[in-house]
Simulated assay, not measured.
Amino acid sequence: MKILLLGEYSRLHNSLKEGLETLGHQVIIVGCGDKFKQFPVDYSIYAKICNQKGILNFLFRAIRKATTLDLEKIEKAIRFYFLIDKFKDFDHVQLINSDALETYPGLSRLLYKRLFSNIKSRSLLVCGDETPIIDYLLKNELKYSILTPYFEDPTLEKQFRYPLKYQKEAYRKTFDWLAQNCQNLITSDLDYEIPMQKMGFKTTFIPNPINTFKIEYTPFEIKDKIIIFLGINRLSYLKKGITYFEKALQQIQEKYLEKVEITITENIPYSQYITLYNKAHILLDQVYAYDQGYNALEAMAKGKVLFTGAGQDFLSHYKLEENEVCINAIPNTSDLVNKLSYLIENPEAINTIGINARKFIIKNHEYTIIAKTYSNLWEASQSA
C-alpha cells in the first residue's frame, strides 16, 4: 500500500512508518515536526516564513496581537494545499489528530475534503487532546486527569487553552466531520481509549509502535550515583503534573546528596533530549496518566525505570501481576519521594525493573507487529 501519515507529535508516526516499510509498504509523513522537538517528516508544512527571525517575525506577531489573525496557521494551510496533488494515488491516509494540519479548523476541513476526494480509505488516530477526550475529562469523573490542575484552579484557563480549544464549535465540527468520514477511529493508549469508550465511540485500540531494533537495551551497573532525569516541556508542564516531580526531587536531593545526580532539561530538541536521558537510570514522565506516552515507552525499551501512569487499569489491561515494568506515579509528593527513596536504597531493583520494562515493550509494542495490526485494519476497511 501507499500510505500517507499526516501529522507528527511524538515520533509515533515515524516508528509506524519504519514498521510499515519493513513490511513492504510505501509511506510518506507530512507535518510540522512539532516545533522545538524537530521530528523528521518527508514533506514539511512548517511555517518557515512566519518563523523567520527579524522584522518579518515581529510584523507577523504584531498582526496576530492586533487582529488575532494567525498567519502561521494560514502559511501551514497554504503549504499543505500545494502538496495535496502529490497524494492522488495513495491507498490510505491516517491523521494523527483532527488538528493534524495545525491550521484553522475551517481551513482544515476544506483541505481534508480535497485530500479525501482522492483517498477513500482513512483513519483518525486519537493519541492526544481531542474533542471527545476533553468532553469526558470535563465531567471530572476520574480520580485525576490532565485537567486536574484546571479544576483545582480555574484561573489557569489560559494555560489550558490548547486542550480546551477542542471545546470550541469549530474544532468540534471538524472532529465530527472526520468521525463520519474516516472508517477507523484508533486509540493508542488507555488515556484515550477509556474516555472514547465512555463517550460512546467505537474505537480500535492499537498500542504505540516502538522500534526495538533501533532502540538498544544495554544492562547497566550503578557504579557511582543514581542518575534521575526530568525533561520539561513548558506547554505540557501543568498537564503532566511536573510540579510534583520538582518538589519530590528537592527532597531527594537533600536526602541523598551523595547518592544521586539529578538532570533537568527544558524545551530541547528530541535528538538532544534522547542523548541526555540515555545516561539516566530513572526517568520522571507524568503523574496524571493511566498509561504510558510515546517517550515513556522509548525509555522503557532502553531499560530505564519510568515514573508514569501504571495503575490498576494498566495492570489489568496488560495482565501484569508480578513483574513490575514501571513505577505508577500519582499526584502525591510524599508517594513519589517514598518510591524514589526505595529505588535509591535498593539499586538492584532498578536493573530488575529495567529488564522487565524491555520485555514488556517487546511483547506489547514491537513496531513491526503493531504496523501489521494497522495495515490489517486498513485493508479490512478497504474491502468492507
Rank of each mutant, 00 (worst) to 15 (best):
residue 290 Y to C: 14
residue 231 G to S: 05
residue 285 D to R: 13
residue 207 P to Y: 12
residue 353 I to R: 05
residue 350 I to C: 15
residue 160 F to G: 03
residue 57 N to W: 08
residue 9 Y to Q: 10
residue 294 Y to N: 11
residue 275 T to D: 09
residue 7 G to S: 06
residue 211 N to H: 08
residue 292 Q to S: 14
residue 145 S to P: 01
residue 338 N to Q: 14
residue 149 P to L: 11
residue 128 G to S: 02
residue 25 H to Q: 12
residue 188 S to T: 11
residue 318 Y to W: 07
residue 238 L to H: 10
residue 185 L to G: 05
residue 160 F to T: 02
residue 377 L to R: 00
residue 289 A to H: 05
residue 271 S to C: 08
residue 248 A to F: 01
residue 152 E to V: 15
residue 116 F to V: 08
residue 38 Q to V: 15
residue 344 I to D: 03
residue 304 K to F: 13
residue 364 N to C: 07
residue 352 T to D: 07
residue 351 N to V: 01
residue 368 T to K: 06
residue 49 I to A: 04
residue 202 K to Y: 12
residue 42 D to M: 13
residue 116 F to D: 09
residue 379 E to L: 08
residue 297 L to Q: 04
residue 275 T to G: 05
residue 10 S to N: 07
residue 243 T to L: 13
residue 229 F to M: 07
residue 317 H to N: 05
residue 256 Y to R: 13
residue 364 N to I: 12
residue 376 N to D: 04
residue 26 Q to G: 09
residue 52 Q to T: 10
residue 90 F to A: 01
residue 375 S to F: 11
residue 276 L to G: 06
residue 70 D to T: 03
residue 340 L to I: 13
residue 10 S to M: 10
residue 77 A to V: 03
residue 269 P to G: 04
residue 85 D to V: 14
residue 249 L to F: 12
residue 110 L to E: 00
residue 321 E to H: 06
residue 199 M to W: 02
residue 277 Y to W: 14
residue 46 Y to G: 02
residue 98 S to K: 01
residue 84 I to W: 09
residue 87 F to Y: 06
residue 358 R to P: 03
residue 171 Y to Q: 10
residue 325 V to D: 03
residue 189 D to P: 02
residue 188 S to P: 00
residue 165 K to F: 14
residue 84 I to Q: 06
residue 130 E to K: 00
residue 20 L to Q: 01
residue 128 G to L: 05
residue 150 Y to W: 14
residue 94 Q to D: 09
residue 244 Y to K: 04
residue 7 G to Y: 09
residue 11 R to C: 08
residue 356 N to G: 07
residue 52 Q to R: 03
residue 152 E to Q: 14
residue 367 Y to N: 12
residue 236 S to M: 14
residue 87 F to S: 06
residue 39 F to I: 13
residue 47 A to C: 11
residue 106 G to W: 04
residue 122 R to F: 13
residue 352 T to L: 12
residue 376 N to V: 00
residue 364 N to D: 03
residue 153 D to S: 07
residue 234 R to F: 11
residue 39 F to N: 05
residue 196 M to E: 07
residue 210 I to S: 07
residue 201 F to Q: 04
residue 225 K to E: 14
residue 141 E to N: 04
residue 231 G to Y: 01
residue 216 E to L: 15
residue 61 R to K: 03
residue 5 L to R: 00
residue 289 A to I: 02
residue 32 C to Y: 09
residue 350 I to V: 10
residue 135 D to I: 14
residue 14 N to R: 01
residue 262 I to R: 00
residue 209 P to L: 00
residue 14 N to C: 13
residue 230 L to N: 09
residue 197 Q to W: 02
residue 152 E to C: 14
residue 345 E to H: 06
residue 151 F to I: 15
residue 51 N to I: 15
residue 209 P to H: 00
residue 200 G to E: 09
residue 90 F to S: 01
residue 350 I to D: 11
residue 122 R to Y: 11
residue 284 L to Q: 07
residue 24 G to E: 09
residue 243 T to I: 11
residue 213 F to M: 07
residue 153 D to Q: 06
residue 207 P to D: 05
residue 352 T to C: 06
residue 237 Y to N: 06
residue 116 F to T: 08
residue 326 C to H: 01
residue 72 E to A: 09
residue 279 K to C: 13
residue 66 A to H: 02
residue 23 L to K: 04
residue 351 N to S: 10
